[in-house]
Design a protein around this nucleic acid. Structure first.
Length: 818
RNA sequence: GCCGGGGUGGCGGAACGGUAGACGCGGCGGCCUCAAAAGCCGCUGUCCGCAAGGGCGUGCGGGUUCGAAUCCCGCCCCCGGCACCA
């Protein structure tokens, strides 16, 4: 507190004053008219928080401040900046917390939201509090349900029984994205496989577009890479292998395999089906039936951890059946093994042990034939294989293709297979359809009614929202159905189509569906009768800049892009990428380590704001390190920005309004304007603040009194970081109406940047030996003469033979001698 | 294993191929003070030297260049994404 008494700068009263005035004047709020008439709209978005009971985390404040600085800068450039905030309050987080505390999420969330709102206001963000969103509000999730209906109508939502990831601890189905290394992302419990009827969104239909569009958007490289890895496009061929009957003379069907190396098909000496493959029963011969069935049971019991993470020792069993390799015409044995996954490709592979590491290992284990079909530079068709050879080379033992280079053989062999009718080129994606069903309570009910006669019937739009009722017993159980399935008075309904007795869908939808479209809602929260107003959406979207954490690089961002594409295809909006520019902020650690309660290094924002003010806190957070990389929060470090803001305050309030600016100081100011103007839009906040500090040091050097003209640009440039203080100083400088509407971002004058004299480094053979001051336009000969004259330089030149002299204007002189 | 991003003082971090370490923290010394806090001024990569000055320094080893933290080649380590994905 004592800190606030000093020099007349009192953050607490100033911050309270301006937060109040912003509110009263509607400084950051848009009316519908303003939204409709904005001429230079800038939609500045940050990832909305989940309102936890613990309150706002420094990580949140860091992210929001970085985004807010960006928004405030755009505003000082004259844009109308819409900067909304909201709450992503549905989901397992809150539900589990409520269960633990013995409270109800419907009581918990509003109080958390109130607390978050209070904390967010104190941080000085430029939020439009008249356009907030709460995903748990029926007026919001009405439209989340509407989106489901639109996908359903478009055939992009389907219900199918599918093996799903089941978390036995959370007692719910998880999306693939929520399974990390075979464990539940949330609680770390090994995930089990179950077969349940689920709703899926067909995001795989959009795989290629989601991949291609990455080229067109301004996103950080890391994020784009994470997305393309997740989509996981691979190019290869689907080949058809005929199944042979006992005699080996007739075929009884065929097995489809997917391979990225169709060129090695001559080396396919056996085939492996996934244990869950539907053709296993067809292929298996009676004498192997017992072994096969035992292996399948075993595989099914293994959870995903055991199956995917284990030591990867190959196991498997022979089915007794054979296929014909369509390239060689030979019969090859069919095995089942759990290293082949049903979820990828066709769930069956042609095994080429000579040129695939896994197949090689399997063949070694079970003594299956290994044939070389690719020879490297120093090898031929008979060179023995000690391990799978996956390098470059030419085909061998491959009939008509012998001698073909592997790079061209992929296409050649595929074409040949297509010609003969046993294969075709195929593109495969790793991306799976999005399972949106959750057997939980705390989410928007999926707006479907199951009718014994009509099947799955969508709830008519005019009956939305399907309101989630308050249910006291919302604890999930192991039954695989939602707690809502215990509430007969809710799920018992009539079919919207035939009027007969029917049952509501009792699952709720994934939280990621809530957050896949919230940015569309923000500017249109004034309307109850439409999810987003066409006119407003047209002028404000897509989002200009989106800032958020990289933990959402795959899930949230992918879903938001998908939903946006669908809405575009359905004609509701005219753009297909929601976020023109996305930047991920870094992570804040504290005292050199990740924040954790056990380490006792968790930063609690409230007391810091109490003691130093939000402006100092914001400035320090932005000063810690490059915004996109994060930084290490050290408690003492805040003294730097704290002192800086106090000195700035002192300098400004004691500035001489009539003094003419000093030429050197003015030059520094112009250099600073240039630097900050270049760095701020690139989120170079730490260096911008450093430049402002340096400039202030120059302004104050020798204890001089600043001229007003020198410091006014500084006040504007500091405004994105310390908005309250900047407002107050702006007012004290005699301006009316607020800095964010009244001030223009300062411009610099190229002519004022250049120094009259410059200091050059003088090197001898690249080693620094002295420095000289010369006039900025001095002739080269004079510069070199001056360099030569430097005492220390002269000493190093003595007794040497000069080979070359390099003079880089304004930089250095280098004597190359021998 | 594949794909990104990194490795710079005691610490956080700056550096269009051109004076490495800006800015800040911490430390040391000084001013102010009865004293402390706050503030202000100076010093602060490291080694040798009284100094002038010099040697060494950006993960390691090479290379290109008058000149490399920066470019190239080969390694090591850290962070993140994907991973029995055929």
């Amino acid at each position: 507190m004592a800190n606030q008494e000093r020099d007349g700068y009192q953050p607490s009263s100033i911050e309270e004053k301006w937060q109040r005035l912003w509110e009263e004047r509607g400084t950051n709020a848009f009316t519908v008219d303003e939204l409709r008439s904005a001429e230079r709209p800038f939609y500045n978005l940050m990832m909305f928080p989940y309102p936890s009971a613990e309150g706002l985390h420094v990580g949140n404040i860091y992210a929001f401040t970085g985004a807010d600085v960006h928004g405030r800068y755009q505003r000082l450039l004259g844009r109308q900046v819409f900067e909304p905030i909201g709450f992503d309050a549905f989901g397992i987080h809150s539900e589990n917390f409520a269960l633990k505390q013995g409270t109800h999420p419907m009581d918990l969330i509003p109080s958390n939201v109130r607390n978050f709102t209070r904390q967010l206001r104190r941080t000085g963000g430029m939020f439009d509090w008249t356009h907030t969103v709460d995903t748990t509000d029926p007026s919001y999730y009405k439209w989340t349900q509407w989106i489901f209906l639109k996908l359903f109508e478009a055939g992009l939502a389907e219900r199918k029984e599918a093996p799903v990831n089941w978390c036995p601890s959370c007692m719910t189905v998880l999306a693939n994205e929520q399974v990390v290394g075979g464990e539940c992302e949330r609680c770390g419990t090994p995930v089990e496989q179950r077969r349940i009827a689920q709703w899926f969104f067909k995001i795989t239909k959009y795989a290629q577009r989601l991949l291609d569009n990455l080229e067109t958007i301004d996103w950080s490289e890391t994020t784009k890479k994470a997305q393309s890895n997740w989509i996981g496009r691979s190019q290869g061929a689907q080949l058809h292998f005929p199944i042979l009957d006992v005699t080996g003379a007739n075929t009884t069907g065929q097995v489809e395999v997917y391979t990225t190396r169709p060129d090695t098909v001559f080396g396919a000496t056996y085939m492996v089906l996934s244990p869950e493959h539907p053709l296993v029963d067809t292929v298996t011969r009676p004498e192997q039936a017992a072994a096969v069935s035992e292996y399948r049971d075993q595989a099914q019991k293994k959870d995903l951890v055991a199956r995917q993470k284990a030591d990867r020792t190959k196991t498997g069993v022979f089915t007794g059946g054979y296929c014909r390799n369509p390239a060689t015409g030979r019969a090859i044995p069919v095995w089942i093994a759990d290293y082949v996954l049903m979820e990828y490709g066709t769930g069956a592979i042609m095994a080429v042990p000579g040129h695939d590491e896994r197949d090689f290992e399997f063949a070694e284990t079970f003594d299956l034939p290994i044939v070389r079909v690719v020879a490297g530079p120093d090898e031929d068709a008979d060179t023995p294989l000690a391990e799978a050879y996956v390098g470059p080379g030419r085909l061998v033992n491959s009939g008509p293709f012998d001698g073909t280079d592997v790079t061209e053989s992929v296409r050649a062999v595929t074409a040949w297979a297509a010609d003969q009718g046993w294969g075709e080129a195929r593109v495969q994606y790793r991306l799976h359809d999005w399972c949106i069903s959750r057997q939980r309570y705390w989410g928007p009910p999926i707006p479907i009614v199951h009718c014994p006669k009509c099947g799955a019937v969508p709830v008519p739009e005019d009956q939305l929202p399907v309101v989630l009722p308050r249910v006291e017993d919302f604890k999930p159980d192991d039954s695989g159905v939602s707690p809502m399935a215990r509430v007969a008075e809710w799920y018992e309904t009539s079919c919207p189509s035939c009027g007969g007795d029917a049952r509501r869908e009792t699952d709720v939808s994934d939280t990621f569906l809530d957050s896949s479209w919230y940015f569309l809602r923000y500017p249109s929260t004034d309307f109850d009768d439409r999810p987003f107003d066409p006119e407003i959406t047209k002028s404000w979207l897509p989002v200009d800049t989106y800032i958020g954490g990289n933990e959402h690089a795959v899930l949230h961002l992918m879903y938001a892009r998908f939903i946006t594409m669908v809405l575009k295809d359905l004609g509701y909006i005219d753009f297909e990428e929601p976020f023109t520019k996305f930047r991920a902020h870094g992570l804040i650690i504290a005292e050199g380590a990740k924040m954790s309660k056990s380490k006792g290094n968790v930063i609690v924002p409230d007391p810091i704001i109490e003691e130093y003010g939000a402006d100092t806190f914001r400035t320090y957070l932005m000063f810690l390190g490059p915004f996109e990389e994060g930084g290490d929060y050290r408690a003492e470090g805040i003294q730097g920005p704290h002192g800086f803001l106090h000195r700035l305050w002192d300098t400004v309030v004691s500035a001489d309004p009539d003094a003419t600016p000093d030429a050197d100081v003015e030059r520094k100011v112009h250099q600073t304007i240039k630097q900050v103007t270049e760095q701020i839009p690139e989120l170079g906040y730490n260096t911008s603040i450093a430049a402002l500090m340096e400039c202030l040091n120059t302004v104050r050097s020798g204890g001089r009194t600043a001229a007003r003209a020198e410091i006014e640009p500084l006040v504007v440039m500091v405004a994105p970081f310390a908005p309250h203080m900047a407002e107050e100083l702006w007012e004290r400088l005699g301006h009316e109406g607020g800095i964010f509407d009244g001030a223009n971002w300062p411009s610099f004058d190229e002519a004022k940047l250049v120094e009259d004299t410059v200091t050059l480094a003088v090197q001898v053979n690249g080693k620094l030996r002295g420095s000289i001051d010369v006039a900025k336009d001095a002739a080269e000969a004079d510069v070199i003469a001056a360099a030569r004259a430097d005492e220390n330089v002269a000493r190093h030149l003595e007794g040497t033979t000069e080979r070359r002299v390099i003079h880089v204007n304004g930089r250095l002189v280098n004597f190359v001698v021998q």
